[in-house]
């Protein structure tokens, strides 16, 4: 071996540095975007489950009787205030002091007697929906003894299925 062996350690260091640079470049180029907590939709998933459970609770008759559920009564009588009280109490309940800051906007979607689908506002929370919120949508089927939109003739009544849809977002 006439070759000089002087720079072995420097050579190894150089190769290691090159590898680190390559890996760094790979990670940077490979990540097309930076994910933050808000991008991962984990909060959306939790909000959707919460809202859907709250609506299910509202649509359960007291003591599992055969009577009308609170939601059924609210839709039939268009009781915006009662829906607000019950729904906000349910979704904003926390174990700690103070409540959560979830806001909502609820609509009723129905099929009218000519077969057209329309939507009526049912209730909303103190902070109005302006469109910039990052909202999720949950819905609940209800059978009501009312023909939407309001119809007084006898043959207009009977049972109909309507869909209560709620937009939920956290302020």
């Amino acid at each position: 071996m006439v070759m000089s062996e002087n720079g072995q350690l420097y050579t190894i260091e150089g190769i290691a540095a090159a590898l680190i640079l390559l890996v760094t470049a790979f990670i940077v180029v490979n990540s097309t975007s930076v994910y933050t907590q808000g991008d991962t939709h984990i909060n959306d998933m939790q909000l959707e489950l919460l809202g859907s459970d709250a609506l299910s609770m509202l649509n359960t008759a007291p003591n599992s009787s055969f009577g009308k559920s609170p939601l059924q009564t609210i839709v039939e009588t268009d009781d915006s205030a009662l829906f607000r009280t019950l729904f906000l109490n349910t979704i904003n309940n926390t174990t700690g002091p103070g409540g959560d800051r979830i806001q909502y906007k609820a609509n009723v979607t129905y099929v009218d007697k000519d077969g057209f689908v329309s939507t009526l506002p049912l209730s909303d929370s103190p902070h109005p929906f302006v469109g910039g919120e990052h909202a999720v949508r949950v819905s609940q089927w209800v059978i009501v003894e009312k023909r939407f939109p309001d119809c007084s003739a006898g043959s207009c009544s009977g049972k109909h299925a309507v869909l209560v849809e709620v937009l939920l977002w956290r302020d």
Binding site: V111, S139, S155
Partner: peptide, 30 residues
């Protein structure tokens, strides 16, 4: 399943109405 046990009685076509509502609203809103 609920609608299956409704009945069309007199002028109120409960079962028919509810079952049609389910199909229409599912298509339009879901």
């Amino acid at each position: 399943i609920q609608s299956e046990f409704l009945v069309d009685e007199g002028v109120f076509n409960n079962k028919t109405n509810v079952q049609n509502d389910i199909k229409t609203l599912s298509l339009h809103r879901q």
